[in-house]
């Protein structure tokens, strides 16, 4: 590059569905940490539309460079080892979108999220979806779907879980589920809000907002 300075870009237009839904959960002017923020689409959106003090952590250096080059406060780091560096209650919301299934120690990451933030917002692909279940039953092979789209030996997703699994984990850890919803990949909020069983069968992705139960 010789001098041409990229302008700070609006990044919200092609934002993934779960990011759009997450941004609707965040209160204006909140302090937000987005773990696994990619190129920073969500934090850019939260700053511009909600006036949030939004920051990000990302493990892929090329994405970090892209984000910082667009003026977004993103640091290279990893959910498993860098969250412990932050002080208690440093953020109002800590976001982990589509990353929980890829971290080494999901339980510890969740604990850290609710230590450094008042609320945790998580999205993850639902391994309980009927297509996943059907493929494993019918073919006896690891499922490949639109959401679970990498073969078992290539996938970074080492800790897949279902929506029901996640409810169980929250109960075990003493987290209050403040909101949750299931969505399909095409971008529609799914109508199974009342039934976790149906959501677990038909929801391709899940979105949860948690907080610690008062001791």
């Amino acid at each position: 590059m010789n001098g041409a300075v990229d302008p700070v870009r609006m990044v919200a237009k092609n934002m993934r569905l779960d990011l759009r839904l997450i941004s609707e959960m965040v209160t204006p002017r909140a302090r937000v940490l987005d773990i696994g923020c990619g190129d920073g689409a969500l934090i850019g959106h939260l700053f511009r539309t909600r006036g949030c003090d939004a920051r990000g952590i990302e493990i892929d250096m090329a994405e970090v460079t892209r984000a910082v080059a667009h003026g977004l406060p993103v640091m290279h780091g990893d959910a498993d080892s860098d969250l412990s560096q932050y002080p208690d209650a440093a953020f109002d919301f800590v976001v982990l979108s589509r990353t929980l299934q890829a971290v080494e120690r999901p339980r510890e990451v969740l604990r850290q999220m609710l230590r450094i933030g008042e609320h945790a917002i998580l999205s993850f692909p639902n391994f309980g979806h009927w297509q996943v279940r059907w493929q494993l039953l019918a073919n006896g092979r690891m499922p490949m779907t639109g959401v679970w789209d990498r073969p078992w030996h290539e996938t970074p997703n080492i800790h897949p879980c279902t929506i029901r699994d996640f409810f169980v984990l929250c109960a075990e850890e003493g987290y209050a589920v403040e909101q949750w919803l299931a969505v399909d990949e095409a971008g529609q909020k799914a109508p199974w809000r009342r039934s976790a069983t149906l959501a677990n069968l038909f929801g391709e992705q899940a979105l949860f907002q948690l907080r610690k139960k008062a001791a």
Binding site: M61, L72, M75
Partner: peptide, 16 residues
């Protein structure tokens, strides 16, 4: 960068 995190500072950190 980590020390700045502990101070809850606004920090970007890139290795080129």
């Amino acid at each position: 960068a980590r020390a700045l995190n502990r101070a809850a500072a606004n920090v970007s950190f890139v290795e080129i």
